[in-house]
Design a protein around this nucleic acid. Structure first.
Lengths: 204, 204
DNA sequence: TAGATTGTTAATCGATTAACAATC
DNA sequence: TAGATTGTTAATCGATTAACAATC
């Protein structure tokens, strides 16, 4: 579903105003049928004989998906990955506002990265409580992840965007966890490479 | 599917030898039924009344998925994200071998990052051809992605692991593309946060 | 033999597709 | 009116689940 938002954003950027299910189907590799059905679940945004107004549709989906709700975010771990996200990732595009980053290293704290302050890890809980932070981005060493996640949950975090390969279990609390698994993704790619090599099915 | 490999690897690391479908189902949040069915597609690895030998099962799945085939990899773009992957991501775990990184910046080229040489972008095509590189990791600015992808494809790359938000279209060639979309992932997280807030369905 | 757990079939469920009437 | 394109229903397909006999 988020793919729709992404694609529609892209079309908006290109200055397009309307799009038909058929056109989108070509762009996204889905059936027109499926797209119409999906959009219809969200309530009727289309107009027969015309198509969909991209702006209206995009905001409608974002609304249903509760994107664009101005979530507050902190990055925990200002290593290469953390800094990459701070500097290059557009949090605003997802309705999120990055408030600060945290790190344990004295070398990093006190500085700013692309306008985002890097604060000492000790202040994290207080910051989360005081600023009512919604989401924590975990970009720290795997070993520190479970412990840090626990601290965040206790401080009242609502969602964890987990970039470590540690699997974060948060029993009992209703904190949402979204894990970005690089190895799953790379393995998927390797799998398709393999399929391409063999003649589809078996071929010892 | 790659999740199975990841979970089994984890169990191996913990020194476990066997696992039952029921146990795995609890760990992974799936039905035991589903797991048995999945594993059966790969050929019978289990033993009634005993369970599955983790080692045998893991290698069996990896075999079918054509993981562990010793793919060669280069990282294209040695910015924060590229360096984060070079330094922290375990390519070997996915059956991949990182050969080199490439960048346009003279400041970076010639150096090494965690033992991986960073080479000038001009040499990329030759390197890909000469070393028969399978996979290119795109961790460069979005604007440079399409052009660079084209160069790689012409040089004979077989798969692209795309970390940019550009969508890489490779018409005509059979190059596999796997895109890691941070914004899709974050939006998914935001969506679930929203669902948690409302009383499930409608609740204006 | 008794207990555990798989392999496999049949039943259920949901998602995708095809088709077409409704309507702009 | 004619053309385009949606909204929506019905048909198809595949994936998930439940159940149980086979067997270690």
């Amino acid at each position: 579903m988020p793919r729709y938002v992404r694609q529609l954003d892209m079309l908006l950027q290109q200055g397009m105003e309307k799009v038909s299910s058929r056109e989108l189907s070509r762009q996204m590799g889905l059936t027109a049928s499926q797209i119409r059905q999906d959009f219809n679940c969200f309530g009727g945004f289309g107009q027969q004989g015309y198509g969909y107004n991209i702006r209206v549709l995009r905001d409608g989906i974002a609304e249903v998906l509760s994107i664009d709700r101005d979530r507050t975010v902190i990055v925990v771990g200002a290593g290469n990955l953390g800094r990459a996200l701070i500097a290059n990732f557009n949090f605003g595009k997802c309705g999120c506002r990055l408030l600060a980053a945290f790190d344990t290293s004295a070398e990093l704290t006190g500085r700013e990265v692309s306008g985002t302050p890097v604060l000492p890890s000790e202040d994290m809980e207080e910051f989360v409580r005081y600023n009512n932070v919604d989401i924590a981005v975990l970009t720290l060493p795997k070993a520190d992840a479970p412990y840090t996640a626990e601290r965040l949950v206790r401080a009242g975090i609502r969602g964890i965007w987990n970039f470590t390969s540690a699997d974060i279990a948060v029993y009992g609390s209703d904190v949402e966890i979204e894990t970005v698994s690089f190895s799953d993704s790379l393995r998927t790619l390797c799998y398709y490479l393999g399929v391409g090599e063999d003649g589809e099915e078996k071929n010892a």
